[in-house]
Simulated assay, not measured.
Amino acid sequence: MDDHATTLPQGEPWWRFPLVWMVIAGPALVVIASFVTLWLALRTPDPVVAADYYRRGIEINRTLADKKLMPALAGRNHAATPDADVPAPRR
């Protein structure tokens, strides 16, 4: 009565089915992408923020407030005006 086991068709090995490789490809690509990301992160580390970043920012703001660095429209309107008569830019 054990004929039932011998009458089942023998299937192909699992690696012969393309759908299996599609299922394996997703996680495999994620693993490869994570290693590439790790390699990029280790190869090009982020620069350290300067300890005096706040002071540098204040200096940049002072420089930008200079009348000579005003917006283009205001600068064009006062191109022939002497520096002493040029109004300060609005904030």
Rank of each mutant, 00 (worst) to 15 (best):
M1D: 10
M1N: 03
D2I: 12
D2F: 06
H4T: 14
H4E: 15
T6I: 07
T6Y: 12
T6L: 11
T7E: 15
T7F: 10
P9H: 01
P9G: 00
Q10S: 15
Q10C: 06
G11M: 07
G11F: 07
G11Y: 02
E12M: 05
W15S: 03
W15T: 02
W15D: 04
R16S: 13
R16F: 09
F17R: 06
F17T: 01
F17K: 03
P18S: 08
P18K: 03
P18E: 04
V20L: 05
W21H: 10
M22D: 13
M22F: 13
V23Q: 03
I24E: 04
I24C: 01
A25G: 11
G26R: 02
G26H: 05
P27W: 01
P27I: 01
P27H: 02
A28E: 08
A28F: 09
A28N: 02
L29P: 00
L29W: 04
V31D: 04
V31T: 08
I32M: 09
I32K: 04
A33Y: 09
A33G: 13
F35G: 04
F35R: 10
T37I: 08
W39V: 14
W39F: 14
W39S: 10
L40E: 12
L40A: 15
L40G: 15
A41D: 14
A41P: 00
A41C: 08
L42K: 08
L42D: 06
L42H: 05
R43T: 15
R43D: 15
R43V: 12
T44W: 15
T44S: 09
P45Q: 05
P45R: 06
D46H: 09
D46T: 04
P47I: 00
P47V: 03
V48E: 11
V48K: 12
V48R: 07
V48M: 03
V49S: 11
A50N: 09
A50V: 02
Y53K: 10
Y53Q: 13
R55C: 07
R55W: 11
R56P: 05
G57S: 14
I58G: 02
E59R: 04
E59W: 05
I60T: 09
I60P: 01
I60M: 13
N61I: 06
N61F: 10
N61M: 07
L64C: 05
A65T: 05
A65D: 09
D66I: 00
K67E: 06
K68H: 09
L69R: 08
L69I: 00
L69E: 00
M70T: 10
M70K: 03
P71H: 08
P71G: 15
P71I: 08
L73H: 00
A74N: 07
A74F: 03
A74R: 08
G75R: 13
R76P: 00
R76T: 00
N77W: 06
N77P: 00
N77C: 01
H78D: 10
H78L: 11
H78T: 13
A80Y: 11
A80C: 02
A80P: 00
T81G: 06
T81I: 07
P82A: 05
P82N: 01
P82L: 03
D83Y: 07
A84E: 13
A84T: 03
D85M: 13
P87V: 03
A88C: 01
A88R: 09
A88W: 11
P89S: 02
R90M: 15
R90T: 15
